[in-house]
Nucleic acid binder design. Sequence first.
RNA 1: GCCAGUGUGGCGCAACGGUAGCGCAACUGAUUUGUAAUCAGUAGGUUGCAGGUUCGAUUCCUGUCACUGGCUCCA
Length: 648
Amino acid sequence: MCVSGVGKEMNMNVVLPDGSNKQVPEGATVADVAAAIGAGLAKAALGGKVDGCFADLDTPVSDGAEVSIITEKSPEALGILRHSCAHVMAEAVQILFPGTQIAFGPQTDDGFFYDFEAPRALSSDDFPAIEKKMAEIIAADEPFVRQVVSRQEAKEIFADQRFKLEHISDLPADEDIIIRRHGDFVDLCSGPHLPSAGRIGAFKLTKLAGAYWKGDSEREMLQRIYGTAFFKKKELDTYLYNMAEAEKRDHRKLGRELGIYMMDEQAGVGLPLYLPKGARIIRTMQEWLRKELYRRGYEEVITPHIYKADVWKTSGHYDFYHDNMYFFNINEGTEEEPRYSEYGVKPMNCPGHVMLYRNDIHSYKDLPVRYFEFGTVYRHEMSGVVHGLMRARGFTQDDAHVFCRADQVVDEVVAILDLADSIMSTFGFEYEAEISTRPEKSIGSDEMWRHAEGSLEEACHRRGLEYEINAGDGAFYGPKIDIKVKDAIGRMWQCSTVQIDFNLPERFGLTYRTADNGEERPYMIHRALFGSIERFLGILIEHYAGALPLWLAPVQAVVIPIADRHMDAARDLVGKINAAEGRAELYSQNEPMRVKIAKAESQKVPYMLVVGDNEIEDGTVSVRSHTDGDQGSMPVVDFMKIIESARV
RNA sequence: GCCAGUGUGGCGCAACGGUAGCGCAACUGAUUUGUAAUCAGUAGGUUGCAGGUUCGAUUCCUGUCACUGGCUCCA
């Protein structure tokens, strides 16, 4: 602690987060401290106890208090701004639509939202009016005032706000109730908030959506308004620009423009049809992975797309997954004496692999058994959730099941994580991992869960893979590791999943022979690393904005003859590239070269090869790269090396 | 499944209570072309679908299907 003050006035000492001290005049308030430090916002401790909000700027600071400072640059500052902006929005909505019931209004990763139940349905046409009112509120620059009230007082204050009343009754009885006033608006909210609304530099309402009260689909649906806010207008502009750019990468748009896949209303919802280029990419992905899997001790299997309903009854899908499955009946008797059998289209590949395992007796010495399959599955997803290739009703998993002994689980999971990492780095992705643990409703003993969860964690540690714990979010049949990858606009999509399953080995009665000739149940590990090949492709398209790397590009090069007399030489070059397992196309249309260049560029083809008099004479080719532009000419043999280097 | 919005020729868009227009693409012809789109011409839609209101609807209303955003879901 520092000693005394200087000068005539009595000074006190406050402690800054870095441990240094600051002299402030006696009687200084939180605001004074903030000003003395030159901080935009300050969170001051009161008498040594951090209060956790910004609003009480006029609260005096005591000698020796610890002060933490939040400036506009602090990581939490933007969230505080946005949450405060949510209050401002709720205030505006209540003014414009008296009688509106307000629910919750938190910050999000890139903005904020607030849930309302307005007297009439809101629409985005109301945004300009709401934004105008918000601007007025912000211009008035009133402080957010924190207040601690009793439960009874709170109930009176929120007498006409039924969601707030419900929330009050959910709060622990011994807890103080903190409310926040801003002008005439009052919210049940502990903060923290900005000192005053005027600090909101720029905001914009972005979208209107429905959201269930408390996230419960059994409860009423409210209207949610999303917005975003920043300290500076320029930051908002940058954000909006980036969002617009991201939209251009949407795989649904690029999928059409680049001829990758299509949807047909007549075909049905969520059933993509792959055009030649899309098929090409998917096969390339599969070939790459197949080689990798063979190298890593997997065996490929092929299983049917449909099974008799009995299989699904044994697996449990018939009862627990019925609504998501396609079932049908077929007459296996005669017209006179019909005998109907029920079949189900597979929503997962597990039962097939389980039956393959069950086909033989297994020794403890034979384990692990690793079966993989590019298994196309169909799930009748709810109509509102389908989303291009990311969430379809028919898709192909790079599915595998590992049957192993308890003592092999960690090694197997380590190997899977290693493969997952290899995939992600090969395709150019960063990823996040999380472990989901035992949910409330689950099967299996405590012991099994402990071992399984411990194994997953240990495997992550061994790989040096950081993970978050998603408590209680595991499947009912076992814990899992999920790996998620970001799409163009920052949405996270689950790709890889590694799940331990206590259920199917039990239901299908899987066993292996132990060293002492006993019978033991094997562990079963489900894993899919692309997850869904289609989803992975969707993310890939967005990640590369359609310009796939050479080894994945469906067309690696287009050959452009300058005039008709160069056509034969151009055709020869295409043949040569394709003979070397490359993928080239001839642009033979009667168009000027620059038009062909333009078309190839818009198709994001990695290389454009120009063949004219000079090239034919020299045995060269003029190379233009999509990423780097005109490269001048090079001997054909040199370009062939580039193509060969991209072989899977 | 729920909430809100949208639905016009292959694609991207315009119009709007009075019998739909543009660009790209397509087709035909000309041009034989040297690094991001040559010129001219032709054809193509009863405005998702079904009802209703109206003298008359693509435009208004209802239902339905699909799509978009979000919620819930993704044993």
